[in-house]
């Protein structure tokens, strides 16, 4: 089985109005080469589910987002995401703003093929005020507690960036935190994975490597070879986030054309050359908190 595909193959399988989940967290291990590819396509009116970083910002800057389902959007070292802020402040996107754990719960419900999962989270807050579609459920047990019924967040497509994969879609996330990528894959009808390295099954590291296999290959629809594909976000242990580039990206909210001309609307390889080359990216140290 060979699941190796091209950027065009991925875009061909996307369509207007889809719900797309993006793995990673803030400025960490985002499938940015895939996001840039969507930005330069005709696809529009997306519902995006994300622990948001520059993936959300870039999609907002390209007017690809109809609705954002999120708990936060942040660039880590730069706390506020300027492109997302601009879209919100100009009322350009619909939002379903949730607690981070509610996002996890929604993905988990979808992953488990359940209509909802109960939680106390959200009670007593404006998360419920602003999301009138959220309903309550009463515990059928003697406590009869009234809880939030967090609905399943079903995804048409999940986009995930990993450290390693074979051509069958046996992926490995080697960075210490796999975030919630497994749930994004389980909640989605199709999952496209971009990978730093594509290796043979023999080179996945056997039992020791298998610990890093966070979800099984039957969930993976296609694998894209994308070295440095998370740039400017980090991809531990391969490289840290490119703070200099993130600053430039962040400031580009004022005049996006300049940033776009300099870096976007080109192949992934040309992007890498434009931002300084993969050798330089691979030397960016991991962040320290």
């Amino acid at each position: 089985m060979d699941k190796i595909i091209s950027y065009k193959d991925v875009i061909d399988q996307l369509s207007d109005g889809m719900t797309i989940g993006v793995g990673g967290w803030g400025a960490r291990r985002k499938p940015m080469s895939l996001i840039r590819e969507i930005c330069q396509s005709d696809i529009k009116d997306l519902t995006v589910v994300s622990y948001g970083g520059p993936d959300v910002g870039l999609l907002c800057a390209h007017k690809k987002v109809k609705k954002l389902i999120f708990g936060f959007v942040s660039l880590d070292m730069i706390p506020l995401e300027s492109h997302f802020r601009q879209a919100r402040q100009k009322n350009e996107i619909e939002v379903m703003e949730l607690d981070e754990g509610m996002v996890q719960w929604g993905l988990r419900a979808a992953a488990m093929n359940l209509p909802f999962l109960p939680t106390r989270v959200g009670l007593g807050t404006d998360v419920l005020t602003h999301n009138s579609e959220l309903e309550y459920v009463t515990s059928p047990y003697s406590d009869a507690e009234k809880l939030v019924a967090m609905p399943a967040l079903k995804l048409d497509v999940a986009l995930i960036h990993v450290n390693k994969s074979d051509e069958k879609g046996n992926t490995q996330i080697i960075g210490p935190d796999p975030f919630f990528d497994e749930l994004f894959a389980r909640a989605a009808s199709k999952t496209f994975v971009s990978s730093e390295e594509v290796v043979s099954t023999q080179d996945l590291g056997g039992k020791d490597g298998a610990i890093f296999n966070r979800f099984e290959r039957s969930l993976v629809t296609g694998v894209l070879h994308a070295p440095c594909g998370a740039h400017p976000t980090s991809c531990a242990p391969n490289y840290g986030f490119d703070i200099k580039h993130l600053k430039e990206y962040s400031e580009a909210a004022k005049s996006f054309d300049e940033y776009s001309t300099k870096y976007l609307n080109r192949t992934h390889q040309d992007y890498l050359d434009a931002v300084g080359g993969s050798d330089a990216i691979l030397k960016i140290p991991l962040p320290q908190f």
Partner: peptide
């Protein structure tokens, strides 16, 4: 920590509610 002003077009968009709803109730 979410937004200042009118929710639909905030005067200042901040981070989003992050984990606050879950933290404070748990």
């Amino acid at each position: 920590i979410s937004a200042i002003g009118d929710y639909n077009s905030p005067k200042v968009q901040l981070l989003g509610v992050r984990g606050f709803p879950g933290n404070f109730i748990n």
